[in-house]
Design a protein around this nucleic acid. Structure first.
Lengths: 330, 330
DNA sequence: GTGAAAGCGCTAACAT
DNA sequence: ATGTTAGCGCTTTCAC
């Protein structure tokens, strides 16, 4: 450490000053060290520091895709609290694939993050669940707190931030049913995701039979194409639901482009309530998830978990009725 | 390292097989090591590894706010290439504040990222510029490649990904001028940002006098409130420009809510072309920036810079004429 | 109050 | 082909 040399003190003294330890150090030397550090624009090596006493103030988050508003809102909520608490955030993309998710989690562990958050909604696949369980167990052994958000807890001793996806589905179902819709199409993004399955199950539990479920890309374009297919095959549909807002937006655009009135001819409902949903014309009826709060809650649970307290949070979902849904045409 | 003990080999041998070195190792021992690592679910400590030979495969990015679609698209572009190249991405939020930006950059340096990308558009403030220059210089000395994106290069020996913000402004100006607009209002997010200033200057260079510039929050809500103020004070305006799409969206909503037709009564133009702009009704006329490409280009330049090649990329901007702009009312 | 020395987990000489 | 050892940059006992 050449800061020490420049200040003509021992390494130990320099370290004591620079690491902000409350160790007593002569004022004169302290000043010398500070001056030297300043001159050299010294930035301590966080890796070396971490090597000696872990990385308590870093949090890693696994997301499906940072570009997806669902995830970027969660991350924004996390970031906000993280900044306040002086945590460093690392984000790893899984591109929604099993292989990537396990690898990405390894990467987080390799970085020895104090807290790891898994935000990608869990895949329903036995191989995946098994390797994830293994990872979680060993992460636990390595005293790294892991939190899952927006999906089933893989096991109850993993802290989790949950939203009631089934209830989200049911509230959409009830809303449409109340408006007289009996034939509704569902644009289902990523049919192998827990959250998608739960939402659809919720809708089905209310609407029963007349549900047409079409798996599509979980994107605006997926919704656009899917709506075309859905309406060509089932012209009797009076409503289209997207399991995420982007798909619902794609649906609205397709309908508009084909001269079909929303909600006069066909109602459209989304899920998640991303920021832009209220600004569309017509504004989108959707189910609001407290995305930013989910990100923040995950960090809180992670911190608790490091103190040995495992808890689970269930955040409420709310149907937001806007202009894109109306009575079924008769 | 207890993997070595469990496999009854020396540390060195274990390291050789686990670090994937191409060093020759007896097959039997190799298998023993692999088995042991597997049993223990061993995950190498990236920090320790980094300590011995740097962190070439990590890239840190400084953004104003991950929740902002402008940044999240850039990050998405970066992530995509990073995953392909096996880079780990760290994201640090600055919350658009000077203090945070310098601190955040320090955090990145402390992590010894191989490549640091500064995506927040530079503040026009002498103190800021000075401390930034100092940081860049010392980062350079520490052999950490730094790339700036979407702003003026602070100095020519820092690789940069630039977009011609002035040209973006001019193309908006020309478009509106051609449609007969002479009195236009500008919703200016963050007036202390280079990019905002350049864009406005571009617009002004074409439209000259009749420009009403109102500084607002660089958000949808900022645009919404700003539009109200702008139109109350200057009822003669025939067009409103947002220096970013979110503000233009806020403007469209305000106008719609007040029964003012877009583009019949007032035209609206944005900038950046975030994904949802084409899906609004009416769809938003805006200037397209290749955001994802900017993120990817930044990583490429960073890698080059590590090889001693400093280059600058200037990406094109394109006016996308959609439905929210039309002839000025007479 | 200060300094010397050990050690965090790993890799890369250097021997053997 | 395998094992021994020094050292990456820092913190922290432990003597002084």
């Amino acid at each position: 450490m050449d800061v020490a040399r420049r200040a003509r003190v021992s390494l130990a003294t320099a370290s004591r000053v620079l690491s902000g330890s409350d160790y007593p150090v002569n004022d004169e030397m302290r000043q010398r060290v500070e001056a030297a550090a300043n001159d050299l624009d010294y930035v301590p090596n966080a890796q070396a520091r971490a090597l000696v006493h872990g990385n308590p103030r870093t949090v890693g988050i696994l997301v499906g895709d940072v570009g997806d508003p669902y995830f970027s809102e969660i991350v924004a909520g996390l970031q906000e609290l993280a900044t306040e608490l002086q945590y460093l955030v690392m984000i790893v993309n899984t591109h929604r694939s099993i292989r990537h998710e396990v690898d990405a989690f390894r990467a987080l562990r390799a970085q020895r993050v104090g807290i790891a958050i898994i935000a990608g909604s869990g895949l329903v696949d036995p191989r995946y669940e098994e390797s994830m369980t293994v990872m979680l167990r060993s992460a636990h052994l390595a005293r790294s707190a892991t939190v899952v958000v927006g999906r089933h807890g893989l096991s109850t001793d993993v802290p989790s931030v949950a939203v009631d996806n089934a209830e989200a589905g049911r509230s959409i179902g009830r809303h449409l049913h109340g408006l007289g819709h009996r034939n509704v199409g569902v644009l289902a993004g990523s049919m192998d995701l827990n959250s998608t399955i739960d939402r659809i199950e919720g809708i089905r539990s209310v609407l029963g039979g007349g549900l047409q479920v079409l798996p599509v890309d979980p994107t605006r374009d997926g919704g656009w194409y899917g709506t075309g297919r859905l309406l060509e095959e089932h012209p009797g549909l009076t409503a289209v639901v997207g399991t995420a807002d982007q798909m619902a937006i794609g649906a609205m655009v397709w309908l508009r482009e084909h001269g079909i009135d929303v909600p006069g001819d066909v109602s459209v409902v989304g899920c998640n309530d991303i920021w832009v949903s209220r600004d569309l014309a017509p504004s989108l009826t959707t189910v609001r998830l407290p995305l930013r709060e989910m990100g923040a809650a995950a960090l809180r649970l992670g911190i608790e978990a490091r103190n040995g307290v495992v808890s689970h949070v269930r955040l409420p979902v709310n149907l937001i009725v806007r202009a894109s849904s109306g009575p079924a045409r008769s």
